[in-house]
């Protein structure tokens, strides 16, 4: 995994609640056996009309909006555990998703793939949506090291939570496997004490 660095970017607004992983990446695109290339089919059925015509009403097809941050309504990433959803967002170019609420499994999957889920209050979420609506080029800063998210125009800044272990992994580009392999001895010791039937 790449080291996660702080960055400044505009954001793409998707003010819809309960966006499930079937929307992020529909099941029929899960047949690939590698992690790459899912960005092409990100939000496939919202992005394209029948006949593979780009849907002009969908935000990702609107050149006014862009950036490495996706802002979405609450309960983002609910539904299936498919990590392909996180891969698709990352592959498309997103580095952070902002919402007032994330589904558990998605959150874990995102963190395991260099995509930072940032939970903000419902009020701030609305503010961010408004900000982008009035100026699609509004800039935001994501600073993982200091756990800070800033609306650059106004300088308004808010801190966000992230699990300390996950933060360490992201900042250093480590993954869980490295860690788990390093504690194999204690796993074996645990097994020796476990009762099995």
């Amino acid at each position: 995994m790449k080291k996660y660095e702080s960055f400044v970017s505009s954001a793409v607004p998707l003010p819809i609640q309960e966006i499930d992983t079937d929307q992020i990446i529909p099941a029929r695109f899960l047949k690939a056996t590698t992690r790459e290339g899912f960005g092409e089919n990100l939000f496939r059925d919202w992005r394209y009309l029948p006949g593979n015509v780009p849907n002009p009403d969908f935000i990702l097809n609107d050149t006014v909006y862009g950036g490495e941050i996706l802002v979405a309504g609450k309960n983002f990433g609910c539904g299936s555990s498919r990590e392909h959803a996180a891969w698709a967002l990352y592959d498309f170019g997103f580095k952070a998703v902002i919402s007032s609420f994330f589904a558990d499994i998605f959150k874990g999957n995102a963190l395991n793939n260099g995509l930072l889920p940032i939970t903000v209050s419902p009020k701030l979420l609305d503010e961010i949506f408004e900000k982008i609506e009035t100026n699609p080029k509004s800039q935001f800063k994501v600073d993982l090291e200091n756990q800070k998210f800033t609306i650059l125009d106004t300088g308004k800044s808010t801190s966000f939570e992230v699990d300390p272990y996950k933060k360490m992994c992201l900042l250093n580009g480590y993954d869980d496997i490295d860690y788990l392999l390093s504690i194999q001895d204690s796993i074996e010791a645990f097994e020796a004490n476990q009762v099995t039937f």
Binding site: S81, I105, G108, N109, Y179, L180, I187, E191
Partner: peptide, 21 residues
């Protein structure tokens, strides 16, 4: 349910990293 990165964790260590719900 777990994601694919965690499937890999279990395959290589029989463990997952998980905060308690």
């Amino acid at each position: 349910g777990i994601g694919t990165s965690q499937v890999e964790q279990v395959l290589c260590s029989q463990c997952v990293l998980q905060t308690k719900p």
